[in-house]
């Protein structure tokens, strides 16, 4: 399991979830992995179906949208210098302080399933979430996934 180097943003300085979603979405769009309008679609979906997860010691978010906005299934990553607020998945009023964002560009349900399962495995261990939040570069990040294998 690997994340492409050009889809990684470490210690990103942003003030809102909209900002981080735009930055990650732009990276995906520039590479031609997603269709035009992907970012707007993710932002809209985040309002109706928020993706913040109340993991420890920091929250994680997994923003995504419908598969018809995606050309090539990919996952983009950002760690945030300062946390931003996401609404909690399955809630309309609980907010989560998120420091780690995985933007999922998935075309079909089976795409990247193994990777998604690994991510969720990492989310359930506070030590791993802490490590994700302080990764220094792409190699560091991919090592974390490898350690899970």
């Amino acid at each position: 399991m690997k994340i492409d180097e050009e889809l990684v943003a470490i210690d990103l300085e942003v003030n809102s979830k909209e900002e981080v979603l735009s930055i990650l979405g732009n990276q995906l769009q520039e590479k031609g992995f997603v269709k035009e309008g992907f970012i707007e679609s993710v932002l809209k979906r985040e309002q109706s179906y928020p993706t913040g997860l109340p993991t420890e010691p920091f929250g994680v978010a997994i923003p995504h949208t419908d598969g018809d906005m995606v050309h090539v299934s990919k996952i983009a990553f950002a760690s945030l210098k300062n946390p931003v607020k996401f609404f909690a998945m399955g809630s309309s009023d609980v907010t989560i302080e998120v420091k780690v964002v995985f933007m999922l560009a998935l075309k079909n349900p089976a795409d990247q399933l193994e990777m998604l399962q690994k991510l969720v495995g990492l989310f359930q261990e506070p030590e791993m979430v802490a490590k994700l939040a302080r990764t220094k570069d792409i190699n560091d990040l991919n090592k974390l996934f490898k350690a899970e294998e």
Binding site: R45, T51, H64, L104, L116, Q117
Partner: peptide, 15 residues
């Protein structure tokens, strides 16, 4: 079920 039927529901289904 999830919002898109594509990401989280797939992980939950496996579990």
């Amino acid at each position: 079920m999830c919002g898109t039927g594509i990401a989280t529901s797939t992980v939950v289904k496996g579990k």
